[in-house]
């Protein structure tokens, strides 16, 4: 079995973001896993994601893990992908400097966001950026 995790991150480094689609029931999983969350089958087809999504909620925590401490404060939110799954990651283009800003922006949800690849803590990862 090829490492799915390695394949995902290598693709991200090459500018491509993959999920997997179940060949049995069609359920989409992101990021890629070996089994289908919906039907339990394990015949998954790699598919590029559109990168389109809706930010549903976000905030900014004061207890980031050691490896992300240097990026603090940053927005962290739940993005509903066009393909269906919800993904939690860093969000660019939001003001997290004060409570009033957090509340005002959350009142505007859902907000259109677009996937972006960014190197954080020595790894190329998938984040989302607010679309203007």
């Amino acid at each position: 079995m090829e490492s799915m995790v390695t394949r995902f991150y290598k693709a991200v480094s090459n500018g491509k973001i993959y999920g997997v689609k179940c060949r049995k029931c069609g359920h989409f999983t992101f990021p890629p896993k070996a089994g289908c969350m919906k039907c339990g089958a394990h015949d998954m087809e790699w598919k590029l994601i559109s990168g389109e999504g809706k930010l549903q909620f976000f905030s900014s925590g004061n207890l980031p893990p050691m490896k992300f401490a240097k990026y603090h404060p940053y927005a962290y939110g739940a993005v509903e992908l066009k393909e269906g799954p919800c993904f939690f990651t860093c969000i660019e283009g939001l003001d997290v400097s004060n409570v009033e800003a957090l509340e005002a922006q959350n009142a505007k949800m859902p907000m259109k966001v677009k996937a972006k690849i960014k190197r954080m803590a020595d790894l190329d990862i998938v984040i989302f950026k607010v679309e203007k």
């Binding site: 939110g77 860093c90 984040i127």
Partner: peptide, 21 residues
Amino acid sequence: AYGYHHAYDVATAYGGLPTLG
């Protein structure tokens, strides 16, 4: 594999968003 390395933020995921939601 993925979630932790995508800027995981325990306080937001566990406390902030459920309270907001």
